[in-house]
Amino acid sequence: MKENSKTVPQPGHLLISEPFLQDENFVRSVVLICENNESGAFGLVLNKVSILKLNELIDELDFLNTEVYVGGPVEQNTLHFIYSGQKLLDGSVSLGENMWWGGSFEQLILKLNASEIDLEDIRFFIGYSGWSVGQLESELEEKTWIVCEKSETESIFKSSPEELWRVILKKMGGEYQVLANYPIDPRLN
């Protein structure tokens, strides 16, 4: 995997928080970049589970007791989703190899009601992570984030939220393998 703080993260890239980041919204976070353009950047935190379940948010899916993740601190009254596999919904945006962001919510509800989507292949998020023009680039210069340019669809959907940060860093190899084992509080080491 490639990492470069000069790289402009593209849709499908991951931002991995450096181990010393103390921002409570992003401690040990893995953020999937969904959009990065002249208006700013949009991403979803992949490894922060909320206290909510999908059936508490969507009446038409009251039978799905599925986890919902906290996509970030912005607009937590919005619901977003990603899924893996083939494109299933009109309007879905490709995020690289076999991963999609959003799409027709009406089609999604119909497919979930008909059990046409495996729940292991979809993740729901309340809120999102957003950066204004130049903000993400500044954070990259400050080395707040490590950029993973390789598609990690399998790791995203198969790893537990608690292990995802560590799994991605280990897969990146080299110096990142060392960071993967860095304790949250080095004083307790």
Rank of each mutant, 00 (worst) to 15 (best):
Q135C: 08
G40V: 03
G127I: 02
T78H: 01
G103I: 05
V167W: 04
D185T: 09
V70K: 12
V74D: 03
L61K: 09
E141H: 04
L44C: 02
S151D: 14
L112C: 11
S29K: 10
W101K: 01
N77V: 00
S151Y: 07
D62N: 14
V74F: 03
E56T: 03
S132C: 03
P161L: 13
K143P: 00
E152C: 15
K170Q: 15
E3T: 15
Q177C: 13
P9K: 06
R123A: 09
V167Y: 07
T153A: 08
E116F: 05
E149A: 12
W145A: 06
N98H: 11
Q107G: 11
D185H: 11
E38A: 14
M172H: 09
I122S: 05
F63Y: 14
E120H: 15
N77I: 00
D121H: 14
I146V: 15
D121M: 11
E3G: 11
E106P: 04
V133Y: 05
G91E: 11
A114F: 05
V27C: 13
E154L: 13
D62V: 02
D90E: 12
E116Y: 07
A41S: 15
D90H: 07
E116M: 12
E142Q: 14
V70A: 06
Q22N: 13
R123T: 01
L54H: 01
I109S: 06
E141R: 13
L110T: 06
E38D: 15
F124T: 03
G12H: 06
I117E: 03
V45P: 01
F157M: 10
E175Y: 04
A41E: 01
L110C: 04
L112A: 10
I16Y: 00
I184E: 14
S94A: 12
R28P: 10
L61T: 03
D59N: 12
D185S: 11
P183Y: 03
T153N: 07
G71D: 00
S104I: 08
H80C: 03
N55E: 10
V74N: 04
E142F: 02
